[in-house]
Simulated scan of single mutants.
Amino acid sequence: MSLRRITATLLVASALSLAGCSSPDPIEEIPAFAVDSPDVNLISNGEGDKQQLVYAFSPQESEIAVNYAANHAAVATDKVNAEAPTGEGLEETTLPLSVSVVDGNVAEFNTDGFRMRWHMDVQGQVEEIKLLPPDGSSDETRATTERALLQIMSTNPVFPVEPVGVGAQWSVKTRTLGDTNMLRTTTYTLTSRDGDTVTLDVQVQEEPAKKTLELDDGNKLTAEDWSTTSSGTITVDLTKLLPTAGENTATTRTVYAGPNPDFKVVQDMTTATTYKK
């Protein structure tokens, strides 16, 4: 799902809203975007008492800081370092989020009038989304807020269906949304559980979804190497839909070979999500 495609739909959505459609809730008129189902694989079910991890749908007030950074440069072939750097000095955008339950397994996330609805199951697998910007918002504000909301959704924990105990580990493979266009494997480790409060260690590995990129001049870039550095520990209150504390961050470096063998194109993409409450 490209950011450009969603932004175009947001413009239509805004027009519908301004036109005053007959529905008392204009987001009902917005087409839903289907989301690819993640591949969830239980690696270890842990030790001791084992229970399912499931979300309860309830209202929530949250504050989440998000960062997305993409940088690329042409580097002399003999100077290329294929190891991903650690994302540091990132500029944060903090979103105050109000979460409400619309109906059954449908939740709405509102930040400064920008609305996003998820339809998801109790393990956290999102099936479809709807987006509606506030009237009068600029294209730049829409794109920035939408990217942040999609990142929050993409990094929200997904649980296995099997009962698990402390030490359990599982992987979630999915395609990232928006401009990143990466295949992401997130490995979660359940490090502690106290009632409805669980702590998860988070490790991420990514690779480009498209290994070949066609340039405007007809030449092509081919991904020949990639690596990810990541870190993360988050706290999840199972009575809420979003983590309540912690941070996860990942930087993926992709090295592309092009028509000039003396140079490579090195691209770094960083996402960081910090849960402040």
Rank of each mutant, 00 (worst) to 15 (best):
L3G: 07
R4D: 15
I6G: 03
T7M: 09
A8V: 13
L11I: 11
S14D: 15
A15S: 14
A15R: 15
L16G: 13
C21N: 08
S22G: 10
P24R: 05
P24C: 05
A32Y: 10
A34T: 12
D36Q: 15
S37D: 11
P38D: 05
V40N: 04
I43D: 09
I43M: 05
E47I: 14
Q51D: 13
V54R: 14
A56T: 15
S58P: 06
S62T: 11
A65H: 04
A65W: 03
N67A: 13
A69Y: 08
N71W: 08
T77F: 13
K79W: 08
A82H: 09
A84Q: 01
A84F: 02
P85Y: 05
G89T: 07
L90Q: 11
T93N: 13
T93D: 10
P96F: 12
S98I: 13
S100A: 12
V101K: 08
V101H: 06
G104T: 10
N105M: 13
E108D: 09
F109K: 06
N110K: 08
T111H: 12
D112L: 10
D112P: 04
R115K: 14
M116N: 11
V122M: 12
Q123I: 12
Q123W: 11
V126Q: 08
E128S: 14
L131G: 10
P133M: 06
T141Y: 12
T141I: 10
R142H: 11
L149N: 03
N156H: 11
V158Q: 05
F159T: 00
P160G: 05
V161H: 10
E162W: 07
E162P: 04
E162Q: 15
V164K: 00
V164S: 01
V164Y: 01
G167N: 04
K173N: 15
G178S: 02
D179L: 04
T180C: 07
T180H: 08
T180N: 10
M182W: 03
T185W: 00
T187V: 10
D194E: 15
G195A: 06
T197D: 07
T197V: 11
V198K: 00
T199G: 14
D201E: 14
V202F: 00
P208E: 03
A209T: 12
K211I: 10
E214I: 04
E214C: 00
E214R: 12
D216M: 11
G218F: 02
G218S: 01
T222D: 08
E224G: 15
E224N: 12
D225H: 12
W226T: 07
S227W: 03
S227T: 10
S230H: 00
G232L: 00
T233F: 06
V236T: 03
D237W: 01
K240S: 09
L242G: 03
P243Y: 01
A245C: 09
G246E: 02
E247N: 14
A250E: 03
A257I: 09
P259D: 11
P259Q: 08
K264G: 01
V265N: 06
V266D: 00
D268M: 02
T270E: 03
K276Q: 14
